[in-house]
Every structure is written in structure tokens, then in C-alpha cells.
Design a protein around this nucleic acid. Structure first.
Lengths: 199, 199
DNA sequence: TTACGATGTATGCGGTGTTCACATTAGGCC
DNA sequence: GGCCTAATGTGAACACCGCATACATCGTAA
């Protein structure tokens, strides 16, 4: 009986599991995210979480979905509807910062194929996708929104992952931010260098 | 004694483990990549691999390093030294195709921080980094090589990951290739749309 | 009040990574 | 050739994991 002074029924074990999972993720990385550890932290038997999550993947999916929602908020906080390159760059910096501040969570979010089962997860990702689309629509009125959205998201997502994997310099947040801003700027200056070649 | 007709000593267990790990990765994904399974497949006791790899992570790092080398070959095969946007796009397509054809391997390669311990792994990644730099140098003689290399790599890497995570349409290889080409093209046409706004 | 459905527990199975003491063998040295 | 040592492989054991199954407890609604 893991519950010393508590009641038999937990009250809101579902939320408690999610919270415990997030804590474990921050403390020990994704390796420490085990159902048993979650149960221990929630002060509950090892199999209790199965009443609320079908299996480990279901819990992980829930964590990921929450991560998506927080990422969306984080981006919106950087700028609700950016329209200039500078504003767009600020959002890009926020994206990468989010990844670097919650590396394990970010990895969980993009670790495995988005199983179509978890509609919670799908909904959360399409929300982000829509946000990017709107951003591009505002910043590039004349462009192919679909194509450019993919480009922008991919660029920023790639920056986040390369930083996360230590493939780029992450010594200080400022260095990272500069790199991101420069990369986004390059989206607008690269052709100049090219035309220089062709002219 | 797992060895029925064989000798006590395996001969080249280190290489055999690597091969087995690669096979398991392709068959069952990264979930199936267990040290014990590797040992079973190599026809050896569960603890034998520890003579050649300090722990599971060491084996995984070796697999990743091999993956980096293969990726470098794959890119070079697409084009040894691209200088035009079209050639650059072809290499980008090859990068994404590599990821989609060996999803589990690609994930292992970029799953966890590149531990500075494994110099084998670091060497392999810097090789890729150098290849990208050279590519940018050739294609954009006037540009900031460092910044633009980061941009290009991030863009292509992000495309690979978003495809891998099912965030983009991956129905057919042609669709994917078109998307990648379009995204790379966007690197050159985006500012046009922008200047349209500003003019 | 009582019966039932929801929630949590206890137990057990097969799998995993890792350690440790031990067995076997290849290859250098006399 | 014969021996010794270091390298290599084995086996048993520990703690942990996900998960299934049977059982205990409790809120609640009839």
C-alpha cells in the first residue's frame, strides 16, 4: 500500500501521472520515463496508471500532446502574428529556445511517428502547422503559402534539432539566437549571392 | 553454449554485433535493438558483446557512426560537388530519401546528444558538416559560408525529420522529392515575394 | 441499503541492461 | 614443442521494465 496517509482512490491520477512523467523527463531524460517510476512518484501501485493510459505509448503521446500545446503558446507569446522578417526571426528563436530548454520533452514530441490513433496529438500538431501557415501568409503575401510554410518550419525545426544534437554551437543562448536569426536572414539574402554568381 | 558447430571464440564478434544491430534496427525498429537480441543473433552469450562495447550506448554510437559514413557516401553519390541550385536540390533529395529509407537508423543517428566520448561519431558528423560547407562554397561563392551552411543543413535536416514524423505528405517518393525541391527552390524565391510586399 | 462500475492492488511472466566469477582459447616466450 | 598470460566467451544473478490477470476497495445511483 503505497498510500500511507492518503485515501484508496487517488482523486486525479490521470493528471498526476502526466505531471510525474514531465518531472521524470526533466530530471532523468526520456530514459527515466518509465510507467513504474511514474506510478511510484504518484504514490500508487505499478499497474494503477493502466486505468488511465492503455500502455506506455499512450502516456508518452499525452506528454507529447501537452508539449505541442505549450510550444504553440510559447510561439504565440514570442509574437501572436508576425509579419516582418524580424518578427518571424523572433518566433524562430523562440522555437529553438523551447527545444533547448526542454530537450527531453522536445525529443518525445518528435521521436516517433505521430500515430493516427492519438487524435489529441494530431490536433495539437495541426495547430502548430496552422500557426506557421498563418505566419507565412502574413509575411509573404505573394508566395506559395503551402511550400513556403514547409520551408520555414523545416528550417527552424532543423535548427532546433541540430542544436539539440550538439551539431552547432550552443555555448550561450545569445549565440544560439544569433545563429537562428542569421539562418532566417539567409532565407532572404541567399539569392542575392546566387544572382551575383549568375550575373 | 549457443555455438553448436562453431568455435568458442567467434572471430570477429565486434563486427558481427554491428551487423546484427543493423539488421534488428531494420526489422523491428529501435525498440528491437537490444544487446541481448544482438548477442542471440550473433550466436553468442548475452554478455559476450560487453567485451567489445562498454554498454548499450557504445554499440548504438557505433551504429550511428556507421550511419553517418553511409549518409556521406549517399550524398556524394547524388553529386560529389554540387554547384548549381539543381544539383544542390538533388543532394537534398538524397538526404531526405536516406532518412525515409532507413528511418530507424536515421533516428538513432540523431536521437541523443553526440557524446564527446565517441570520437568515431564526432569525426563522422564533422565529415558531413564539411561536405555541406563545401557544397555551399561552390554554390554561393559570395555568401557567408558558415551561416549559409547552417541554413542549408538545417533546412534539409528539418525536411527529413518532418517527413519522418509524418508531419508532411510521404505518400510516394516522387511527392517527397518534389516537396524537397520546392523547399530548396524557396530558398531562392522567397525574397522575391517579400520584396513584392515592400515595393 | 445495496449492487455495480470505476479505480487501485498484488502477483506473476517474460524481457532487459549490467556485473561478477569462471571457462576457454589464441598467441607470445622459453 | 610446451607453458603462461591476456583476450575472449559463458553462466548465474540482480534490479528494473512493460504488461496481463485476478482481486480489493470505494463512490454512487437505484
Amino acid at each position: 500500500m503505497p498510500q500511507a496517509g492518503g485515501t484508496y482512490h487517488h482523486g486525479d491520477l490521470r493528471a498526476a501521472c502526466l505531471r510525474a512523467a514531465r518531472e521524470l523527463l526533466e530530471e532523468d531524460g526520456s530514459a527515466g520515463l518509465s510507467l513504474r517510476a511514474v506510478a511510484r512518484r504518484a504514490g500508487v501501485s505499478a499497474t494503477a496508471p493502466y486505468r488511465h493510459y492503455a500502455d506506455r505509448d499512450a502516456l508518452v503521446s499525452a506528454v507529447a500532446a501537452q508539449g505541442y500545446r505549450e510550444l504553440a503558446e510559447h510561439l504565440a507569446a514570442a509574437h501572436p502574428s508576425p509579419t516582418t522578417p524580424d518578427e518571424l526571426a523572433a518566433v524562430a528563436v523562440a522555437y529553438v529556445r523551447f527545444a533547448l530548454e526542454r530537450p527531453a520533452l522536445f525529443r518525445v514530441m518528435f521521436a516517433e511517428p505521430c500515430d493516427p490513433n492519438s487524435e489529441e496529438r494530431v490536433a495539437a500538431t495541426t495547430a502548430i502547422s496552422e500557426y506557421v501557415r498563418g505566419m507565412v501568409r502574413g509575411a509573404f503575401p505573394g508566395a506559395d503559402v503551402e511550400a513556403l510554410s514547409t520551408t520555414v518550419w523545416a528550417l527552424v525545426h532543423g535548427l532546433a534539432f541540430l542544436h539539440l544534437d550538439g551539431k552547432l554551437d550552443t555555448s550561450t543562448p545569445d549565440v544560439v539566437a544569433d545563429q537562428v536569426r542569421t539562418a532566417v536572414q539567409a532565407l532572404f539574402t541567399a539569392p542575392a549571392a546566387l544572382s551575383q554568381t549568375r550575373a
